[in-house]
Design a protein around this nucleic acid. Structure first.
Length: 582
RNA sequence: GCGCCCGUAGCUCAGCCGGAUAGAGCAUCGGAUUCCUAAUCCGAGGGUCGUGGGUUCGAAUCCCGCCGGGCGCACCA
């Protein structure tokens, strides 16, 4: 249990004692009682709002109740001071030893320090990336993929059983476009002049080798054939080749999925009919005509009766088509079947990471999950906003039409996986993100990646020096270090920041916000850098002092613990901690 | 027109389930390097938290209106 939860228990105990003594009514609702670090460190290490929250129902003045609580808490183990302050907070100061003991916890628990059972072993299916198999990943895909991957790491650390899943959209119209694009290249290769590339075709040169392989394997047999004859062949070859390329891109990003699910396969296995039948049984499906779209007028709009899902009964703004006017299943129908499939594979919590341009799709998917699972599954959709690319402060103008796309792979080659991953997590998911290729490569001081990496590397450097000086650095000795040697306010501030880690994990996991890890690591690195510099000004504060082995051992233990927490945080972000920078 | 997201310092953004005098980085200005990595540190200036109401002990945070920006709005994905 982390320190804040431990103190919350003490607060609850104090409230129970007051209730027993008749100074508080029994059975108060303690749901809103919190123990948090105060914004202003002068107020103490922790503060509880208990008196403020309970005053009304207890019919007590907040300040008086706070004073009663402070009196009770003053005697709690590890509490040095408990003081009531206006308007009714109780500020707590803990014994230094309590904080310092966290060092030993970190060293003993290692990678597990900060792990929580928040998820209670519940299976969560995280679906992210899921880029169409029609081309390589670009930078926008990169953001959602990094976010999803870090979120999956975070949830796993927070006690969920995590399934990482990629949905391959290989069943719809976009792979037919891919097939036509490939066929165009195929004709070019075989000298059967197809004319200029049609405007809706994918212009990527990455398609040329795929077309060439078809030409080599099949020869000219498809020339002059109608689309129905070659579509399947080209669509299959194209999507498989592009998925192979996407898997390479994912590997370059350091992302691994547990499951790849193919839309085409879901369709072939009759899953759509199955899911729609289930909705039908519950009376959520009907044939009807939707009103015309409200946005820009659609020129070829005609009122058509369609098979519809009664999404409006589940909070959506309108009912949604399951079949097109031509009778084919819609993408939504397949996606609905897909989500039902994920639920039936054993995940009551479904997390989808989408681009912000799919925001209009959220409600209908939530409605579908609610209807299909009878409310037994919860769908959480996280939208990632756009990435704006810059180079040296100048916005990068890219246009798909002109074929000037910046592939993720190229960016990774330029800036490196770790920089890219960290930068993608320096904003919360629903805020747009500026990414400057030049600054990221520069490794300049306004690059937060290196600020954090530098802290880790500095600690590694201290250990190298300690070993050269013949100081013990093994884990066993560090765990037994005399932590009471750490008395400097800077040391204690660093240790307290480090001890916030379990809290950060819980907050980040509860809100599905891995960016909080990045901001926390920046703070922790800052506390380390500050302490470091004081050692340059005052010899007594240097980490390694050969003449004072006890102090040195305690400081090395502290540094080892901080390094452990930084490394853990970086790994959740999918960033490799470095041991030196040059 | 409707839905979702956003609006916090000159710029880019944090702000945890409502909490105390609203924070960080960049930029500007002033300092710190014999010695564990200066890719660092210390300090200063800079904010009506878009705006108007409401809820309450307390609102950047929750609710409503308005203004401004982004995304989306049958039969694509």
């Amino acid at each position: 249990m982390n320190l804040f939860d431990r103190m919350l228990e003490e607060v609850r105990g104090a409230i129970a004692r007051l209730a027993e003594a008749g100074q508080l009514p029994p059975d108060l609702d303690l749901g809103r009682v919190t123990v948090e670090p105060p914004r202003d460190p002068d107020h103490g290490h922790m503060a509880t709002n208990a008196a403020l929250v309970l005053a009304r129902t207890a019919r007590r003045r907040p300040m008086e109740l706070a004073e009663d609580l402070a009196r009770e808490l003053g005697g709690a183990p590890g509490v040095r001071e408990a003081r009531a302050t206006a308007p009714g907070f109780v500020n707590l100061r803990l014994e230094d030893a309590v904080w310092l003991e966290q060092i030993r916890c970190v060293l003993e628990q290692g990678e597990d320090y900060g792990r929580t059972d928040l998820g209670a072993g519940i299976t969560v299916n995280c679906e992210y990336c899921s880029a169409n198999p029609t081309g390589p990943l670009h930078v926008g895909h990169g953001r959602g993929t990094v976010y999803g991957d870090a979120l999956a790491n975070l949830l796993a650390f927070a006690g969920y059983r995590v399934v990482r899943e990629y949905y391959i959209n290989d069943g719809g119209g976009q792979v037919e476009v891919l097939a036509r694009s490939l066929f165009h290249r195929y004709r070019e290769i075989l000298g059967d002049d197809p004319g200029p590339l049609p405007p809706d075709a994918y212009p990527y040169p990455e398609l040329i080798p795929v077309a060439r392989r078809i030409a080599e394997e099949d020869g000219p047999v498809w020339l002059g054939q109608p689309e129905e004859a070659w579509r399947e062949r080209f669509a299959r070859a194209g999507s498989e080749a592009m998925m192979a390329r996407i898997r390479e891109d994912l590997a370059a990003l350091g992302v691994r999925f547990d499951v790849f699910t193919s839309e085409r396969r879901l369709i072939q296995e009759g899953r759509i009919e199955e899911a729609v039948r289930r909705l039908e049984e519950q009376g959520h499906v009907y044939v009807g005509t939707l009103p015309p779209p409200k946005g820009k007028p659609v020129e070829d709009w005609e009122p058509n009766p369609q098979l519809l899902f009664r999404a409006s009964a589940f909070g959506d703004d309108s009912d949604r088509p399951l079949k097109r006017a031509n009778g084919a299943w819609t993408y939504f129908a397949a996606d609905l079947a897909y989500h039902y499939d994920k639920f039936r594979r054993g995940a009551p919590l479904l997390v989808d990471v989408w681009g912000a341009d799919h925001g209009g799709y959220v409600k209908r998917m939530e409605a579908a999950v609610a209807a299909l699972t009878g409310g037994k599954a919860r769908l959480v959709v996280k939208l990632c906003q756009m990435v704006h690319l810059y180079r040296g402060g100048q916005p990068l103008r890219l246009s798909k039409r002109a074929g000037s796309v910046l592939w993720l792979r190229d960016v990774l080659e330029q800036v490196g996986r770790d920089v890219f991953r960290f930068m993608m997590l320096t904003r919360k998911n629903d805020a747009p993100l500026d990414f400057d290729l030049e600054k990221a490569v520069e490794q300049s001081r306004d690059n937060p990646v290196f600020y954090v990496q530098y802290a880790h590397a500095r600690i590694c450097s201290v250990f190298r020096h300690a070993e050269e000086a013949g100081m013990p650095t093994d884990r066993r000795r560090l765990i037994a270090a005399p932590l009471d040697q750490l008395r400097d306010p800077g040391e204690l501030a660093l240790v307290r920041t480090m001890a916030h880690w379990p809290r950060v994990v819980v907050g980040a996991a509860r809100h599905f916000e891995p960016h909080r890890i990045a901001f926390y690591l920046h703070d922790l690195a800052g506390a380390l850098h500050a302490l470091w510099t004081r050692g340059k000004e005052d010899d007594a504060l240097r980490f390694v002092i050969p003449e004072r082995p006890q102090v040195t051992l305690a400081r090395l233990a502290m540094l080892a613990a901080v390094r452990q927490v930084i490394a853990r945080g970086l790994r959740i972000m999918g960033v490799e901690p470095v041991t030196e920078l040059q």
